[in-house]
Structure formats: C-alpha cells, structure tokens
C-alpha cells in the first residue's frame, strides 16, 4: 500500500531523472561543467574534446541507461502482475536465454559481424517468448503454463548455449561480456529503433494500465468483469518481451533491475498500474544511470559494467526495504 502522494512521487522521480542525466553527462574520467554541456547541446562555443565526449560517448550512454532502466523496470511490473509472481522478471519468458543463444550463434558463425549482435539479441528474445507463448496458448495460457513453458524452453535453449560454448571456446569472452551487460561503447545509431519501441511500449502499457489492474484480481474475477483474460495477458507478455528484448539488443543481459524496481515502487506509490508504471520506469532510469556513473567513476580509469553495480546497489537496498516493511 502506498505511503506517499503518488503525484508528488512521480514529480520527484521526474526531477531525479533529469538530475541523473545531467550528472551522467558531466561525470566521467574527464569531468565537464554544466556550462560546457549546455554549450555542446545548444551548439554554443565548446572545445572539440568536450563536443566529442558529450556527443559520441556520454549522450548515447546516458540515453541507453534511461531506456534500459525504464524498459526493464516496466517489463518487470507487467510480468510480476500478470504472472501474479513477485519473482517474475524478463527471464521468466525466455528473454535472456533466447537473446544469449542468438548472440552466441552470431559470435560463433560470423565472428567478424559484431553489428549483427543487437538484431540477433532482439530476435532471439522475441522468438523464444513467442515459442513459450505458443506452447502456453496450446494449453490454455494460464499463469502456471506460461511459467512451466518458460522453464522448459529456457532449459532447452540453455543446453544449446552450453553446446555452442564447448564447440566454439574462443567466443566465450565476448559472450561473457554480453551476459554481464553494460552500456560502454553504445552508439547512438544502435538506440534509435529500440528506443522508439521502448517509448511506444511504455506509453501503451500506461494506457492499458486499467486492464493490468483488473487482471491482478485473478482470472475468474477479471473474466466476470468482462475481460478477455487470455488475450489481454498475451498482449502484455508481448509488450514485456518487446521492452526487454529492445534493452537486451543494446545493453546485454542486465539483471536485477527488472526484479527490484517494481517492488520498490509498489512501496512508494501503491499498486495502481497507471501510476506504478511511470514511477517504475523513472526509478529504473535513475538507478541505471546512477549505477553507470558509479561504474565509470569509482575505479577510474577502470570501469565496472553497469550490471554489476545494479546488483551491488540493488541487493542491499532491497533487503533494507524488506526489513523495514516487516517492522511496520
């Protein structure tokens, strides 16, 4: 149940996103002032170095952070609600195993074609999700069958992943960096298409929020209220897989964000999807951008991938939240 005014929380979160983005542009191995960033963005006077750093390194990186954080968090909210399962994350619908398998195939068969990796990750994630959906649909698409079909398909695909890593041992390093997930080296052109898809899915999920609320009352109640339960659930699974699949395409497998952000935001704004989804999206964006800043500043000039930081930050934060909730 919510403890704060939900509109206030959303306004604060929005301000937080802007601050995080500004910090993301300013901080790094070379720090830039607010003024320099302003000048670069508005086309004013700035040094070539500043222009290069902001435009080709930090801007894509921060944009990727915002999109990845928001996309994974909203996918998490959707999946946790429709599966009625607090542990649900994009993993449950095969996004990770599917993307991983596809990337591995590309690495093994076309070792020079790094440009194919984003598309392969996205397609792998979506294909696996659709395979799971088809299996679940055939058996009446209940919550349980989706989870079980997910386990079956992920297990099968996982075996494929292991086989490939044994047959092509020299691709393991590249594959590992994909599975840890990170935002370094992201290019702006890798973001346009997934970014657009994430924004559209984000808006769609807020617009369909009431449906998500009704679905959370259970299948029987939702059906009695006149909802086509299985159809709506399928629609949300597709939305979640597009969100997560897009993120995987440019950021690899970043864990934990999709799992914890929805829980944190439920405590902040309650369970109404129409408020929870924007709140989770913004909170996820902040978490991801801040984690990425920490990853590149803390051990500079070395960098920690953002996936590691989100887990380091998220774990204890989540634990504190659980303990606090218990005392009330």
């Amino acid at each position: 149940m919510k403890k704060f005014n939900s509109i206030t929380v959303n306004i604060i979160l929005f301000a937080g996103v802007i601050i995080a983005v500004l910090l993301g542009l300013m901080l790094g191995s070379t720090s830039l002032s607010m003024e320099e960033i302003w000048n670069v963005l508005t086309g004013g006077e700035a040094s070539e170095a500043a222009k290069a750093i902001v435009k080709s390194i930090r801007l894509p990186r921060v944009a990727a952070g915002v999109l990845a954080g928001a996309g994974l968090s909203v996918a998490g909210v959707i999946l946790q609600t429709i599966m009625d399962n607090p542990l649900a994350s994009p993993n449950i619908i095969g996004v990770n195993s599917g993307a991983g398998f596809a990337v591995l195939i590309i690495l093994a068969l076309f070792p020079e074609s790094f440009a194919l990796i984003p598309a392969a990750a996205f397609l792998g994630a979506l294909l696996t999700t659709f395979l799971i959906l088809a299996l679940a649909h055939y058996t009446r698409a209940s919550k349980m069958t989706i989870v079980l079909a997910g386990i079956a398909v992920s297990g099968f695909v996982g075996a494929g992943i292991n086989t490939l890593t044994l047959l092509f041992p020299d691709v393991v390093t590249s594959y590992n960096s994909f599975t840890i997930g990170g935002l370094s080296g992201v290019l702006m052109r890798d973001l346009y298409l997934p970014g657009l898809c994430i924004i559209i899915s984000f808006i769609l999920s807020i617009m369909l929020g009431r449906g998500l609320n009704v679905l959370s009352l259970g299948d029987d109640v939702a059906a009695s209220l006149g909802m086509r339960v299985n159809l709506v659930r399928m629609l949300f699974v597709v939305l979640a897989s597009i969100l997560a699949g897009c993120v995987v395409s440019f950021a690899g497998l970043i864990g934990f964000v999709g799992l914890i952000v929805p829980h944190v935001c439920r405590k902040l704004v309650g369970n109404d999807a129409r408020i929870l989804i924007p709140a989770s999206g913004m909170f996820g964006a902040i978490l991801m951008v801040v984690s990425d800043i920490m990853g590149r500043v803390m051990f500079s000039p070395y960098e920690l991938p953002v996936g590691i930081i989100t887990a380091f930050l998220g774990g204890p934060f989540f634990m504190v939240l659980l303990l606090k909730g218990r005392r009330h």
């Binding site: 009352l217 259970g218 029987d220 109640v221 009695s224 209220l225 006149g226 369970n271 109404d272």
Partner: peptide, 17 residues
C-alpha cells in the same frame, strides 16, 4: 455480458488496494 451478469467467483485474490 458483464453488464447483464455480475459473477462473484469462489476463488478471489487478495489484492493490495
């Protein structure tokens, strides 16, 4: 149909709202 018949099913979740 739901405007004609309202059904209170036996199995109901316990939502936090």
């Amino acid at each position: 149909r739901a405007k004609k018949i309202a059904i209170m099913p036996q199995i109901r979740s316990i939502p936090s709202i």
